[in-house]
Amino acid sequence: MAFRKIDIDALEEDALGQDELDFQEIGEARSRQEVEAQVNSRAQEVRTLLQRGNTGGALSSSLQSPPYGRGFEAAKARNTQTVMEVLNSIKVAEVAQLVKNLNPEEQDVLMKYLYAGMAAPEQNNSGVLLAWHEKLTEVAGQGCIVRVITDRRTV
């Protein structure tokens, strides 16, 4: 099946490429400073909410407008860390109710972060993430997992 390894798009002048798809889904790229400032201020805000014991608020605000697009690796890692802090500081008993309170868009973003977290098992506690994954799948279904795969706006 050697022919399967041939890049047929290379022969096509007008192939649909990565850049075009990213632009279509994400839109105009923002500046790095802007994205990083937003991520840092959110990390602060989430930490304050956690200190006050407002876990629901912390979870919800950690999932707002994630840094999408290429070239924001540092900001993405920082934001993933913020979400992980929230997930780790919530008691298992609370998880089911908190997941139910999220809107469908937040649920999809949370699922993206669960997979992003599980992709780095040396940094994150996979046991905690799997517990969240189970509860989230019960509420949002397999469709939520499918959307993590199809969505080009990766975290």
């Binding site: 469908p104 868009e105 999809d108 949002a140 279904g141 397999q142 469709g143 939520c144 499918v146 959307r147």
Partner: peptide, 15 residues
């Protein structure tokens, strides 16, 4: 289009 609305339902099932 008459109402200018685009509503997306995120289904819990497979595609």
């Amino acid at each position: 289009p008459a109402a200018g609305s685009v509503q997306t339902i995120r289904a819990p099932s497979l595609p």
